Amino acid sequence: MFDSYAGYEGTSGGEGGAYLPPPMLSVPMPEASSHPEWHDNIPSISEERAREAFEDYVSSKCCYSSGPVKDGVITNMESFNTYRYRLETFTESRSTKLSQEPYTGQRADAAIQRAPGPWEIAAQPPSYFTEHKETIRVPYTSSIKKCDSCGGMGTKPCPSCTGTGSKVCSWCNGSGQSPDNESCNKCNCSGREECSSCSGSGVLKCNTCDGKGQLLVFINLIVKWSTEKDEYVAQDSSGLRLEKLVKVSGKELFRDAQIMVYPVLGFPDVSVAQASERLIRDHRVKYTKNSRILQQRQTIELITITRVNYTWKEKPYVYYVYGNELKVNAEDYPASCCCSVM
C-alpha cells in the first residue's frame, strides 16, 4: 500500500526502513585555508611541575608507595611533541517507518494529495555538531484499517482462562470441597471460580488498538543529526603509547569549518597533511551516500610530552607527563603492591 507513495517504497514496520539517499544538491567548493604559524621551539614544563604531576598521580593510586616521589632523583627531562588531526562531519540522515496508533477519529488524509518526498519535508536542524533525532508524521499517508491483532473486534480471548471466564478453583482445586471435606464456599461447590484477569467476561481489551477495533496507519519520517569523527595522531619518538593521548587535550594550532573543508596545506608534518587529505576523501565518500553533509570541521592540536628519567635506590626509571592536563604514565613504577578494598 505504501509503495504507491513516491520515495517511500520499501517502508516497513520494523525499527525503520533503509536510509534514504538525499537529492543531489550543489555544494559550494571548499576553500583552502592557510596553515598555522609554525615555531621550531617545543614547549616544555619545569622540573617542579613534573614532580607535582608525578606526586598527584601516585597519590591517586591506593597501591603505590610515595617513596619514589619523595626520594627519587630526576636525572634528565626531554620534551617531545606530537600532533592530533581531527575531522568532524555533521550529517543529516532520513529513514522511514510504518507506524500505527488506535483510531479515535483522527483525520485520514491518504491520497488527498501527493505525499511530500522524504527530503521535501522541512526539519529544523540543531546547532552544528549536536546530536539530535526527530520523528515527523508524513502528511497524506494516514489511512484507517481493521486491527489485525483482534480482527476488528476490539477484544481478544483472555489467555488466563482461554476465553471461558472461569478457572479451576484455587481453594478446592476443582473438587468442590475444602481440604477438610466441607463444601467449598469460594466456588459454591462448583469447582470453578471467576477469572480475576478478565472479571469473568472471558475477553480482554486489545492492547494494539486499545479496544477500538481500528487503527490509523501512517508513515513516520525519522530525521537524525549526528557527528561522525575521525582522528589521526602523528608518531613521535618519546616512547609513550599513542592510545594514552586519547583523553588529553593539546594546544589548538588550526581550526577550519565549512560545509566541505579543504585538505590542510603546507603543514610542517607531512603525515598530518596526508591524513587530512585521506580522511576528508573518506568522509565524502562514506557520508554522502545515505546522508547529507551540513558542516565539516577540522582541527590540529599540539600535544606536548615530557619524558622524565629518574633514579630511585640507584636504579633508573622513567615516567611521562603529557597533555594540557599534565597526565602521568608510569608503567614501571617501582613501589607498588597488591591490595584489595574490603
Rank of each mutant, 00 (worst) to 15 (best):
K315T: 08
L294I: 08
I303H: 05
R307K: 15
L253F: 11
K289A: 15
Q298R: 04
K244L: 14
Q274R: 09
L245F: 10
K244C: 12
N309P: 02
S271E: 05
E252C: 10
R307C: 06
I280A: 04
S271K: 09
S271F: 06
K313W: 08
V264K: 02
T304I: 04
I305Q: 03
L279D: 01
Q258G: 01
A273S: 12
I293Y: 02
P263S: 10
E301W: 00
R307L: 11
S249P: 01
M260R: 01
V270C: 09
Q258N: 09
L279S: 03
N309I: 03
I303R: 04
K247E: 14
S276P: 00
F267Q: 01
V264N: 06
I293A: 05
I303T: 03
F267V: 07
E314W: 11
W312A: 12
D269S: 10
K289Y: 13
W312L: 13
D282E: 15
T304S: 12
F267N: 00
K315I: 00
K313M: 11
L279N: 06
H283N: 04
L253D: 09
A257H: 02
N309G: 00
R307V: 12
I305L: 08
N290H: 15
H283R: 00
T306D: 10
K251F: 10
L279Q: 10
I293S: 05
V272W: 09
E314D: 15
E252W: 09
E243T: 10
V272S: 08
R281Q: 07
I305G: 04
A275R: 03
Q295C: 09
A273Y: 03
R292L: 14
N290Y: 13
Q258T: 07
A273I: 06
R307S: 10
A273H: 03
K313D: 12
V261D: 02
V272N: 08
I303N: 06
T306K: 03
L302G: 05
P263Y: 07
D269E: 14
T299I: 09
Y310S: 07
V272M: 10
K315G: 01
Y262K: 11
P263C: 03
I259P: 01
D282L: 15
I300P: 02
T299F: 03
T311G: 04
L294T: 04
Q274C: 02
I280Y: 05
M260N: 07
I259G: 00
V308L: 05
N290M: 14
N290K: 15
R255K: 13
E243W: 14
V248H: 07
E301L: 08
